[in-house]
Amino acid sequence: MDHREALIAASNNRANLNYVAPGIEVQGLSLTYPDEPNALIDINLSIPGGEVTAVIGPSGCGKSTLLRCFNRMNDMLEGCQYSGSITLGDLNILDPMTDVTLLRRRVGMVFQQPNPFPMSIYDNVAYGPRIGGLRRRRDLDEVVENALRLAALWDEVKGQLGKNATVLSLGQQQRLVIARAIAVQPEVLLMDEPASSLDPISTLRIEELIYELKQSYTIVIVTHNMQQAARVSDRTAFLNQGQVVEYDATDKIFTNPSQRATEDYITGRYG
């Protein structure tokens, strides 16, 4: 299916309250870096659409690496080799012939550090739609306003859209980055420790935002904060040394993990 049609379909679907974003199927995914041959080992995950999935695990276990596989950001790293398959709906993500720029419009990503572009707030949010070919000012205005409203930033910045985005507070910047990501209407939103550099109140706002968004987006979030994982996610995957130790409903993981390692990690006896 052509991406444009897919997008129109997604938009139309999203208008429909019964719309559920597609899920991600990971099968036999292994990944090596030049100096880290076991970054990911035989990962099998079935991430359901329209839900929030948390990925937890000690530092260096491969969480970010896994996340970057979903929109092929690993391609930019030299010497990174991977095998296995990841599918999003009917799209084979790891297929060499897959167009990564299109893929990345369907799978948005938010990073640990807020990274607004050195331009105005408006231009930041309009960036994605613009490179997608949206040119009409009225359309852009609408997209920007909606995205900012969805990211719960509209009320704070509506009078100053022309202001340079880099002068916003960190919490505002991170919400701006989320608004920027959802302005291109992705189906999946990847968040790599989105709140780790924020204060508690900003963190809370981000969590509320995730809750708001989860109806129409499939969200995968990496976090080191156990409470956060418990609060926002429906399912949780625990990774250790490049392997999935346990993957289950969040309630189950946090109340009654089946693996000893998971319990150790959650209760803080680990990492």
Binding site: D2, H3, R4, L7, I8, A10, S11, N12, R14, A15, T101, L102, P129, I131, G132, G133, L134, R135, D139, E142, V143, N146, A147, R149, L150, Q185, S216
Partner: peptide, 21 residues
């Protein structure tokens, strides 16, 4: 308020191909 998700991208392909080029 109009539905936020109702935009279609008439130029997406041409813009993308130009960028690729």
């Amino acid at each position: 308020m109009t539905n936020p998700d109702m935009f279609d991208y008439p130029d997406l392909n041409s813009a993308r191909i130009r960028d690729e080029k």
